[in-house]
């Protein structure tokens, strides 16, 4: 089916950039530096507090028009909007997980004279990551579904071609949408399995 390439590209791009954003913003919100913390907090609230569709329109229409910032292509705009949006959500998971590792773990690290970096790298982060994994899996599936919104900024993804097909032949309307539904589900399947797998991994070696 045409459009699959676009959908998968946007998904792949958003996943990579989104998780990257999540970790960067998550760590920044835990920084000792007030400015960094406030600034990231601002970013997170802006992107969580406004809708993804509006953000998509901003990146592809408003930014170039108002400020003359050209993002290059719709593809970049789409990936940027989705990853920044989900990055904002997931940064809260990163932050929350790190904070929820018990204080005793930090103290044990200090007692063994680990540096702050070593405490994060070997003690806190590995445990926090286990807590993040199941939630991350959920967001993976949500991101896939969010990619369908890019058809609204004129990108030729699966939904776009579906709509095109439908308008050329109204008789197959329901069939087209059924296929799109199945398409998204089939792509989501491995992600669902991955999420289950992640949940299993995260159960191993945790505090009881």
């Amino acid at each position: 089916m045409r459009g699959m390439g676009i959908t998968l590209t946007v998904l792949g791009g958003s996943i990579i950039l989104g998780y990257l954003m999540a970790f960067i913003a998550g760590f920044c919100r835990l920084s000792n530096n007030t400015f960094i913390r406030k600034f990231t907090g601002f970013y997170v609230e802006i992107f969580r507090g406004t809708s993804l569709i509006v953000q998509l329109f901003w990146f592809s229409y408003a930014l170039p028009m108002l400020f003359g910032i050209e993002l290059g292509s719709d593809l970049v705009a789409g990936i940027l909007a989705i990853s920044l949006n989900y990055g904002a959500y997931m940064s809260e998971i990163v932050r929350g997980s790190i904070l929820s590792v018990s204080n005793g773990q930090t103290e044990a690290g200090i007692a063994l004279n680990l540096t702050p970096f070593q405490r994060m790298r070997y003690v806190i982060f590995p445990q926090a990551l286990r807590m993040m994994l199941p939630e991350f899996g959920n967001y993976l599936i949500q991101m896939l579904k969010a990619t369908s919104l890019i058809s609204l900024i004129g990108m030729t993804d699966v939904l776009y071609y579906g709509n095109l097909l439908r308008s050329s032949n109204l008789a197959i309307e329901s069939t087209v949408y059924l296929f799109i539904l199945i398409f998204f589900f089939i792509i989501a399947l491995p992600l669902i399995f991955l999420t289950r797998k992640l949940e299993e991994i995260s159960k191993k070696g945790v505090e009881t």
Partner: peptide, 8 residues
Amino acid sequence: HFNLFPHM
């Protein structure tokens, strides 16, 4: 409370 590292 021991504070062993549970992931190791």
